[in-house]
Design a protein around this nucleic acid. Structure first.
Length: 259
DNA sequence: ATGGCCTGATCTTCAGGA
């Protein structure tokens, strides 16, 4: 079984590439982030024609997440039950479902903007709400994972030049502690192998030739419980999908499971 | 070549991304 996560940066703009990639990669379940769509705009019919059911949590031009599955889609939960609001709004950043033998969450963790910003405090509260939401499944015996754009680089090796991130979000001790607390519930960081160079970056800024210069970050993560992590046969970053015209600024992270 | 982005909506300008 092949599962994957991909921040597509607009599912409408990415639809041709998304459909082509689903077919070429043979992915069974894809966790999608940044749909930048309403649920009405979401291309569920096109995906259904390609063989995928959709579970969508999306409200408009910002955020938006989905689960696409061709192996079943049951017990859908939209949003974190105890998730915090930002500016009085509960943003669409999480959706969970059971897809055949595995239960998965697709998440888009808040960016944080700047250390000390209200959005940064919101990011930390959001990660704690995620931890509480997944604790039971993380400790359970059914294969389970949280996949998505975590907007945190877990280690110093997960950014292309640490000196460029002094004082910035994504690398602070508090953000990394929030990931550690998530792992402490029983989740393992399933680190993919890079297809090129030595580090498995998943995001490269559109600006300043970030991708050609391999100025990347590993912020799209797969956190699996023991049953899922133990079933991993392979995992890689499909950097080929970051190439060319009409690419997202994130590449898919693929995980092959023997389940 | 010493610069260099992309998206959708508020739409020729902006917020947000990280």
């Amino acid at each position: 079984m092949r599962i994957a996560t991909w921040n597509v940066n607009s599912i409408t703009a990415r639809l041709p590439r998304l459909l082509a990639w689903l077919e070429s990669s043979g992915t069974d379940v894809l966790c999608v982030q940044e749909t930048k769509s309403t649920e009405e705009q979401f291309p569920a019919e096109e995906l259904r024609a390609a063989g995928y059911e959709s579970a969508v949590n999306a409200t408009g031009r910002w955020n938006g997440v989905a689960l696409l599955s061709r192996v079943g889609l049951e017990d859908v939960v939209k949003g974190l039950p105890e998730g915090p609001e930002y500016d009085g709004v509960t943003e669409p950043r999480a959706v969970g479902a059971t897809c055949g033998p595995v239960r998965l969450w697709s998440v888009y963790v808040p960016n944080g903007r700047e250390v000390g910003h209200d959005h940064y405090a919101y990011k930390l509260r959001w990660l704690d709400a995620l931890r509480k939401t997944v604790a039971d499944d993380a400790a359970g015996s059914r294969p389970f994972a949280v996949l998505g754009d975590f907007n945190v680089a877990p280690t110093d090796d997960d950014v292309w030049d640490l000196s460029r991130f002094v004082g910035a979000t994504h690398v602070t001790p508090d953000e990394r502690a929030a990931l550690a607390a998530l792992r402490a519930e029983g989740l393992t960081d399933v680190v993919p192998r890079p297809l090129k160079y030595d580090r498995p970056y998943t995001y490269w800024d559109y600006r300043e030739l970030g991708f050609p210069k391999n100025r990347g970050m590993r912020i799209d993560l797969v956190y699996g419980n023991a049953a899922l992590a133990g079933a991993v046969k392979d995992s890689y970053v499909d950097r080929e999908e970051r190439k060319g015209k009409g690419a997202s600024d994130h590449a898919p992270v693929v995980v092959d499971l023997d389940v």
